[in-house]
């Protein structure tokens, strides 16, 4: 007897890990954004996307660590309860 222990190789992106999030999520206000891209660069999950002065987060992968909120020089991102 065998259990299903072998799976076809897949990219990690197929595994949506957003359900592991801490309970809080970043909220992008889109008011004071200067387009410095710091949030995009520091996100450990690489799940912030966008361009120019409009960025957002892909909640399928965001873990709610809040680093983007800390780094934002114009406080244009806030953590909110889910």
């Amino acid at each position: 007897m065998f259990a299903k222990i072998l799976v076809p190789a897949a990219k990690g992106i197929n595994n949506k890990t957003g359900s592991w999030r801490s309970g809080k999520k970043p909220n992008f206000l889109h008011k004071n954004c200067t387009g410095c891209r710091m949030c995009y660069l520091v996100c450990p999950e690489g799940c912030i996307f966008g361009s120019k002065k409009k960025y957002d987060v892909n909640l399928d992968y965001c873990k709610g660590c809040g680093i983007c909120v800390e780094i934002c020089p114009v406080k244009d991102i806030v953590m909110i309860e889910e």
């Binding site: 222990i5 072998l6 799976v7 076809p8 190789a9 897949a10």
Partner: peptide, 9 residues
Amino acid sequence: NPLTFGALV
């Protein structure tokens, strides 16, 4: 024919 052995379950 790539397969994953011993993945996290």
